[in-house]
Design a binder for these strands. Structure first.
Lengths: 141, 141
DNA sequence: CTCAATGCAAAGTATTTGCAACCGA
DNA sequence: TCGGTTGCAAATACTTTGCATTGAG
């Protein structure tokens, strides 16, 4: 076991390795920003890009987009569409509902198991349910 | 009662009137395409624009966009975001879940009452639930 | 007549792509 | 070395906006 086990950098490297993705400099930076501290995170390409710029490493916005897509295809992230104007990416790949704060465009996880379906429709003939997206839109009260 | 009561044109005019929107030529055309036959419909700006062109009336794509937005603000339509790349508008304003056919990008209504929640999370402090969006993604099986 | 609605083109915003330079295995 | 990655700029897709013209009340 590496002496750096458990460090953000180590987590990031392992995360990439688990998906068979090459650990390039920019991927490691982005991965560390995403899961370095072990917490789940919701980002947009833009927000992650800004965070990456803050680290001093040179990363282009296009690469952030491409990387987020690669991570998603590899199963490391889920893409969430709530707003139409931008895509959110979630480091929590498990099936769960989201809170969308309409006032500031923030996306957070709904408490685990908070949403339970009593009934779901049967899929129409010739189709199967791939996924059920639940977005709970919140407004300041 | 107008002798034309029940005709598509009459429905369209009434629909606009109920929202206090001026019955201009293009709004009437679009309204008739949307609810003229009394059925619910799911459209994108592009699909509605094409349909409108087929009627021979001169309508610009920008006007379709602006009109769909006006109708939505007026409460005649709901905007649905499933895909990120385009907005769908639904003539059924009631709260209901949708089927999204991933293969051809089509959007349809889930059977009424097909989705029942056993449990919904309490809204976080200082917020209230504005709306719960449920999109059931279907894949050909 | 007056002000809202429209058409068109130009501007925006979010995202993807083409291609040469680069770098990790 | 070799093929996957990156950066940049240009391209794309969708939607909104500015402004002069039109039309409904």
């Amino acid at each position: 076991m590496d002496e750096r086990a458990g460090t953000p950098a180590w987590r990031a490297a392992n995360w990439l390795a688990s998906a068979g993705l090459r650990p390039t400099r920019q991927r490691l930076v982005l991965a560390e920003l995403l899961i370095g501290d072990g917490n789940d995170r919701h980002v947009t390409a833009e927000s992650l890009y800004e965070a990456a710029c803050g680290t001093g490493t040179n990363v282009s916005l296009a690469t952030v987009y491409n990387t987020l897509r690669s991570f998603t295809v590899a199963g490391l992230l889920t893409e969430i569409t709530v707003d139409g104007t931008r895509s959110y990416f979630d480091t929590d790949v498990s099936d769960h509902a989201h809170f969308y704060w309409e006032d500031d465009g923030r996306l957070t996880d709904a408490p685990l198991g908070a949403v339970q379906f009593e009934r779901l429709p049967d899929p129409p003939e010739g189709a199967e349910i791939a996924k059920v997206d639940v977005v709970i839109r919140l407004r300041r009260s």
